[in-house]
Amino acid sequence: MRVQFTRAVASPTLAARPGQIVDLPDVQAQQRIDAGHAVAVGQPKPRLRDRLPGRRRTEPRTSAKESTVSQTRDGAGDGKALEKLTVDQLKEYADERDISLPDGGRKADLVAAIVAALSAGE
């Protein structure tokens, strides 16, 4: 594996200056990379958050709309989650549930109408 040294290294088997590119066996190259002495050449550099322990995200992120829809279906939607949606998303949400909305209403009016319709439907 080809590595580029980030700092000066001197050992009985290897001497390298910062910026020098050397071809090393995979095991030795990985040891130098893990120690922070070198970076792999020709491979993407790992992001800092991927190298820090406990910072890896294992669950995929959900969008605000998906979380709001799931909260409302579970009965936890009290309008606060709906306020995160855009006006277009609110209209789409109301259309999916056959909720009538006021014409030319502002976002607050749309949220209030949806909350009222959901409360009446329960």
Rank of each mutant, 00 (worst) to 15 (best):
R7L: 09
R7W: 05
A8H: 14
A8D: 10
V9D: 06
A10I: 13
A10R: 15
L14Y: 03
G19H: 02
I21C: 07
D23P: 00
L24F: 00
P25C: 01
Q30P: 03
Q30T: 06
Q30S: 13
Q30N: 11
Q31R: 15
I33S: 02
D34I: 12
H37R: 00
V39E: 14
V41E: 08
V41T: 14
G42R: 02
R49A: 08
R49I: 14
L52A: 10
P53I: 08
R55Q: 14
R56D: 08
R57T: 15
E59K: 07
E59F: 07
S63M: 07
K65G: 01
E66T: 12
E66R: 12
T68P: 05
V69I: 15
Q71K: 11
T72S: 12
T72P: 00
R73A: 12
G75C: 02
A76P: 01
A76Q: 13
G77V: 04
D78M: 12
G79R: 03
L82C: 03
L82I: 13
E83H: 14
K84F: 11
L85F: 00
T86I: 07
T86A: 09
D88K: 06
Q89A: 08
Q89I: 06
L90F: 03
K91H: 05
E92R: 03
A94R: 00
A94L: 00
A94K: 00
A94C: 00
D95Q: 06
D95L: 04
E96D: 08
R97L: 12
R97G: 02
R97C: 06
S100F: 04
S100T: 13
S100Q: 13
P102L: 06
P102I: 02
D103L: 04
G104E: 04
G104C: 02
G104F: 13
G105K: 04
G105I: 01
K107M: 11
K107S: 05
A108Q: 14
L110Y: 13
V111E: 09
V111C: 10
A112M: 06
I114V: 12
I114N: 02
V115H: 11
L118C: 05
S119R: 15
